[in-house]
Write a protein that binds this DNA or RNA. Structure first.
Length: 353
DNA sequence: CATTCGTGGGT
DNA sequence: TACCCAAGAAT
């Protein structure tokens, strides 16, 4: 009988777990089916960047129904795609998604390249996504390292160097345990394990298929891995948003491609800072909603004061934009901050009427 | 290597 | 409540 090395045992234990307990997810090929569609794998991987499976679900269904192939997506209008992405966050992903689809059509004949190196050269495809698509869609051996894998590996080997300094060690360890065959299943199994058992807090070590292989479970506090550097406090900022209404239409602008909420439709707004410019963009009889919209971004929190006014046909609205029917504001594709500002305006009206 | 970039759910 | 965190990429 062959004696398995530790690394080989981890992979075989994990794949055995996956064969029985793999989550059924819309972008995964069902058991026994052919390999997953690279387009769907890529789309799901981009949507899942820093985003939960639960949040992605409805967006993935909507996108694949509306744009069944990468060619369909490449042919879409920018504004349509950005509006469809609204609410999912990290909007640079949507801009890169379209650029990537068009690059696949233009440079690869509408077929996704099947090597990690070529995938990595596409817009919005970094080290993680290139490895994941190469392994999951094309069966290549690739070392797939996301936050789940970092956590699982840090625990398996009790790596106590704080992140991000530990990344090279974690990657090397992940490389050692990645099998030559079924690298895609192995990667997805690591992510399933991290999402359901080897969770950030209160890991279910009692039912873990890698319990016998794990160094951290033999310590006082397995959840202490991976060690993380302290994060700095989140500053608070203020801002003003302007709801300009004329003949049942509201003035929406398009934000610059770069920066926060880049490329998205929005209400005209001030800068967001300690002391934002509160000067209205035009002269009108402004009403200010009592409670500002409180919103939390990754690196700061915001209190947005929302002001609204009706104007006549003689005024010039600020910036480049369009008059959008108020009754269809839900279809404008506003990011959540501005969707909530619009909702605040609607609520105040309902209360008044 | 550090910063910027959304949002919603879990604890 | 106030954090923490998520199938990261670009700069």
């Amino acid at each position: 009988m062959r004696v398995e090395g530790r690394e080989t045992k981890i992979a075989s234990d994990l794949l055995a777990f996956y064969d029985v307990h793999a989550r059924r997810l819309p972008w995964r090929a069902p058991p026994g089916a052919n390999a997953a569609d690279p387009y769907r794998v890529w789309l799901s991987e981009v949507m899942l960047q820093q985003t939960t499976v639960a949040a992605v679900g409805p967006y993935f269904a909507k996108f694949t129904e509306r744009w069944p192939t990468v060619g369909d997506l490449a042919a879409s209008e920018d504004a349509d795609l950005m509006a469809a992405w609204a609410g999912l966050g990290y909007y640079a992903r949507a801009r890169n998604l379209l650029a990537c689809a068009r690059a696949v059509v233009r440079d690869h004949g509408g077929v996704f390249p099947d090597t990690e190196e070529e995938l990595r050269a596409l817009p919005g495809v970094g080290a993680y996504t290139a490895a994941a698509v190469a392994a999951i869609a094309f069966g290549r051996r690739a070392v797939v390292v996301d936050a789940n894998v970092e956590r699982v590996v840090a625990r398996l080997f009790a790596i106590d160097t704080p992140l991000p300094a530990a990344r090279p060690d974690i990657r090397a360890a992940a490389d050692r345990i990645t099998p030559d065959a079924r690298a895609g299943d192995f990667a997805q199994a690591m992510m399933d394990l991290g999402a359901t058992i080897c969770t950030p807090r209160n890991p279910a070590c009692g039912i873990c298929p890698l319990r016998a292989d794990c160094a951290a479970v033999r310590t006082a506090d397995p959840a202490a891995y991976p060690v993380k550097a302290e994060k700095k406090a989140r500053p608070h900022r203020l801002g003003h948003g302007w709801w300009i209404e004329r003949d049942a239409h509201v003035w929406l602008v398009r934000r610059p491609d770069k920066g926060l909420l880049g490329g998205m439709r929005a209400l005209p707004s001030s800068d967001w800072s300690d002391a934002p410019d509160a000067t209205p963009p035009l002269a009108a009889r402004w009403t200010t909603i009592d409670a500002p919209v409180a919103h939390i971004f990754t690196h700061f929190s915001l209190a947005l004061s929302v002001h609204h006014a009706h104007v006549g046909a003689d005024v010039t609205p600020p910036g480049e934009g369009e008059w959008w029917p108020v009754a269809r504001i839900g279809e404008a594709g506003l990011p959540t901050l501005f969707a909530r500002a619009a909702e605040a305006v609607r609520k105040e009206r309902d209360a008044r009427d």
